[in-house]
């Protein structure tokens, strides 16, 4: 694809603008700002990645990964506003998810600790984990608000904080993991994932692209599971004080 072809794809955004204006949706400004931001942000990250890939420095790569996790944690934490220590919980859960997932891939030799491999892979891991963590916090906050009676009745029967919350925790984990499980079930039938599509468009054989996609699918499943379990089991404690009273 040459630059002119790329520029011409903007005509699709113009179509969206036309439809928005014609139907008085009021999204014209948002579409223009969004498109400009996408181009600027992606161009900038293109320069940064080119620089980092060429530098091939372990410390800088690790620093970028930590920054990536921190940014994702701040976004996920917004879904759990009001939960004590939410940023710390989100950061720890996302970091644990990345370390274990990346560690496993490195251990089995699926990837190498090079910025060109580690950074895109980590982006996928952290991005999916961030969405899962957000779902966890949202679900916990909602369930602890609407099911206070259930939790307090269990406390009255002599349950501790964990025993009184275990039903809520299990439902939360299911809620946060289901989108990933559903997506895994429909891979190749309903959707061709972005990464695999990108590799095929870049000229790679579909069979090789599929191998990468299978690795990425398993990797994301593991990452989402680690995030949902750790975030749920850390975050539920924030709903109780030291006397095991609901806050």
């Amino acid at each position: 694809m040459n630059d002119l072809s790329l520029a011409m794809t903007f005509s699709l955004v113009l179509l969206a603008l036309f439809l928005s204006q014609k139907n008085k949706i009021g999204l014209e400004k948002e579409l223009v700002v969004g498109s400009i931001r996408a181009v600027v942000q992606l161009t900038l990250i293109g320069f940064v990645l080119t620089y980092v890939f060429n530098l091939n420095n372990y410390a800088l790569t690790t620093l970028l990964l930590v920054l990536m996790v921190y940014n994702a944690a701040t976004v996920a934490a917004k879904r759990g506003q009001g939960i004590d220590h939410i940023l710390r919980i989100a950061f720890t859960a996302l970091l644990a998810s990345l370390v274990i997932t990346l560690g496993t891939l490195l251990f089995f030799g699926a990837i190498h600790y090079q910025p060109s491999e580690v950074i895109p892979i980590s982006g996928m891991v952290v991005g999916n984990s961030m969405v899962a963590a957000g779902l966890v916090f949202n679900s916990l906050r909602d369930k602890f608000q609407h099911r206070r009676d259930e939790v307090e009745i269990k406390l009255c029967l002599g349950a501790n904080a964990k025993e009184s919350s275990v039903a809520i925790i299990r439902e939360t984990i299911r809620t946060a993991m289901l989108p990933n499980v559903d997506s895994m079930k429909t891979l190749g039938i309903v959707q061709l994932p972005g990464m695999m599509t990108g590799l095929i468009l870049a000229g790679l054989s579909p069979m090789i692209a599929i191998k990468y996609q299978i690795m990425v699918t398993f990797m994301i499943t593991g990452a989402v599971a680690i995030t949902t379990f750790s975030a749920s089991y850390w975050a539920y404690k924030s709903f109780f004080n030291e006397l095991e009273q609901l806050q």
């Binding site: 009676d149 259930e150 307090e152 009745i153 009255c156 039903a167 006397l243």
Partner: peptide
Amino acid sequence: QPTTLRREIGYVFQKTYLFGDTIKENLIYP
């Protein structure tokens, strides 16, 4: 220990709340 105290002092709420699906679940919970 809150759990110890609450096992000694039972409390039944005004609003009945049975959890889970079945009566059995509620009665084996203690």
